[in-house]
Design a protein around this nucleic acid. Structure first.
Lengths: 175, 175
DNA sequence: GTCTATAGGACGATAGAC
DNA sequence: GTCTATCGTCCTATAGAC
């Protein structure tokens, strides 16, 4: 995942992967049918980790508290896996059609969780958004964007960033 | 730019580029010193187009109107060049150190324009943001995210999307 | 489950004719 | 400024020994 993130799928050879894990290239084929299968396996595991970590959280009562929980969860989870996040977005184009469809299904499932929170908040009169689908994409893009600038050795902890972004998200969707 | 966006820099061969423009591979070297130079030239032109298009706009008086103008400009400009936007973000890692630094300088210059708007708005008491640098990154990530879902043949025009996002940005930074 | 060796082909870049 | 031809290198994937 680290090599794919740093260099891109096409620029990483099986020889380089093998060298990083301390075997010869041929030995990798005992673990993956081919390079494409390896990329898919990494991306699928990442998406499944995301969905199960999300499912493991206790759902708060109100849509407002649910949105705060989603915001803090999303930032904390993604800041811990910058390589996986980068690869899972950038290398969608490197997947063959069937693998692409499988990853997109998982991604859609995650986005739906946020959209349902927004829909319930709108119905309860707590939120005002132009369109729940667009607001979903806007919030996720804003939150995932943390990965482009956050540095572990910077002045802010992941939890502090969560609070900062929660204030912006809260206001952006406020009634 | 289209080929790099669809397949990634490393996955595009000089032979493929040549075939798309109707020449043999060797002929390309009359136009670029090498493949790396071609990537850099494309990305540099994109960033310079962005900065000069931005500079060409008449600056409104108030920070609020400036922020609205920036929001609408950013969305309109980026929706017209999805391939260039994708490549300029994704292929930063494919640039050598010197070219990377040059592109980063141009990118920083663009981000600074938004940050200065936010700073003036905060000083005027119009905006309340946790940190102008973080708010800058959050707004740009949200706006650029439009490119991941917008379809030209969809129900919304680029201008309508601009209005939708302006409402979210306005609320997110509101005092 | 690892190794060495290699098949078979694509790669970036250049040389030299025209 | 384009072509053909090619250099030297690297690629994925497989075969077969151990």
């Amino acid at each position: 995942m680290r090599l794919f993130a740093q260099r891109g799928y096409a620029a990483v050879s099986m020889r380089l992967i093998a060298s990083e894990v301390g075997v010869q290239a041929g030995a990798l084929y005992n673990y993956t049918p081919d390079k494409q299968g390896l990329l898919f396996s990494l991306m699928q595991s990442h998406m499944e980790d995301l969905l199960s970590a999300r499912a493991a959280r206790v759902t708060p009562d109100s849509p407002l508290a649910q949105l705060e929980d989603f915001t803090r969860f999303h930032i904390a989870f993604h800041l811990q896996r910058p390589d996986a996040v980068f690869v899972s977005y950038m290398e969608l184009r490197s997947l063959d059609a069937q693998n692409f469809a499988a990853i997109e299904t998982l991604r859609r499932r995650y986005e739906d969780e946020l959209e349902q929170i927004l829909q319930r908040g709108v119905q309860a009169g707590l939120f005002t958004v132009p369109d729940t689908k667009i607001a979903t994409m806007a919030v996720i893009a804003m939150l995932t964007g943390v990965n482009t600038w956050y540095r572990t050795d910077g002045r802010l902890s992941a939890a502090e960033v969560g609070t900062i972004y929660w204030n912006m998200v809260r206001k952006a969707v406020a009634a």
